[in-house]
Simulated scan of single mutants.
Amino acid sequence: MKVIERLSLIDRIGRELQSRMSYGEIDTYLKAHGVDIKKPTSGVNSKWVYSKELLADESEDLIIRIADELEVPHNHVVADSTKTLEATFWEPFHFKLFLSHLSSFKSTTGQLQAALRKYGISAFVAHVDIEPTREWMDEIEAGLYSMDALAAILMPGFKESNWTDQEVGIAVGRGTLVIPIMRGLEPYGFISKYQGLNATGKTVAAVAEEIFRILTSSPKTRAKMLSCLTETTLQAKSEVEVLEKLGFLASVKALPKGNLQQLQEAAANSVVLMAAKPLEKLNELLASHKLSPVFFKKSVFDFDDDIPF
């Protein structure tokens, strides 16, 4: 993990602890993870700063494990006690979905990958994401051990393939959510307990939307998916993108107020969110959950052409 990535992850853990816990609860939580809560800190009256200072010297493994438990988005994983795998192909702040598929279906799987991105989902597709110069088995392993969920595109020949069957097996073994996408083959074996998504006769866009609905409704993935959608909304680069993502958030049933409060608090730092239409859409969403609106603040760099010199 690079130094800047480590600092960024600690920062986001601090924000998460700040939003969830009191000082006493932070102490109890971090102490349970073996963090020395008696180490000297700056004394700044901020749970965010306090948490970051306590975590500053902790090991990467511990920071990753805490991030995982708090469901803070990141691209690192501790595979075992001796090896930390880094998956460089996941997009920052996105939900990590491994797409298990037959090579004969790689073109359509690539299109599904592109369709999922607008929901804040980074989908791993081996033929697209593995660099030719990298050991491809290591890359696939990194993807399997850092994924948040796996979608298996079930079609004739899938269960006869050693690779796809092993990919599903790792997901089941890790207790990761498996989404069976049925395209001529019913869920079988250990994945027969999961409700399949019937893709017959549906467009790529429709399948992507159903995957998003499953991820926001499953107890295994709901919190992480919503956290990633919130983060990618804040990272949006255009008004069209941010309006689309706000629309996805508005469509989620029983959307937690915490996600909206995160947008509410961070909106002032996003030029795109503070634009007229996105700000109006955000305030409609806040009002529907009885939260205070965000007001536009004139930048110190704004000026009036008509002011006399």
Rank of each mutant, 00 (worst) to 15 (best):
T216I: 09
T108A: 10
D129G: 13
V207P: 04
L197D: 08
K193A: 11
P187D: 05
D129T: 13
K159S: 09
A205I: 06
I191C: 04
I214S: 10
T203L: 13
E135K: 15
S107C: 08
I130C: 08
G184Q: 02
M155S: 14
D129E: 12
R222E: 11
Q113H: 12
F158A: 00
R117T: 12
V125E: 04
T233W: 09
Y145C: 01
V252C: 08
I211K: 02
S192C: 04
T108Q: 10
F212K: 03
S107H: 15
A115M: 05
V172C: 12
S218C: 01
L226S: 00
A114R: 15
G157P: 01
T216G: 07
L243H: 01
I181D: 11
M147Y: 08
L234C: 05
L185N: 03
P156R: 05
V207H: 11
H127R: 00
M155K: 13
E231Y: 13
I153E: 03
K159Y: 13
S238A: 13
V172F: 04
G173D: 00
L249S: 10
L154P: 04
F212I: 05
V207D: 12
G157I: 00
V204E: 12
D148F: 11
I181H: 15
Q166N: 12
R222S: 11
S238R: 14
E141I: 13
A126P: 08
G201W: 15
A205R: 11
P132K: 14
E186W: 04
A115I: 00
S192K: 04
G157M: 06
A199C: 05
P156C: 06
R183W: 15
R222W: 08
E209Y: 03
P187S: 12
T203W: 08
A142P: 11
A123L: 12
D165H: 07
F212T: 05
I140G: 01
K237N: 13
L144H: 07
I130M: 09
T221L: 05
T164E: 03
P180L: 11
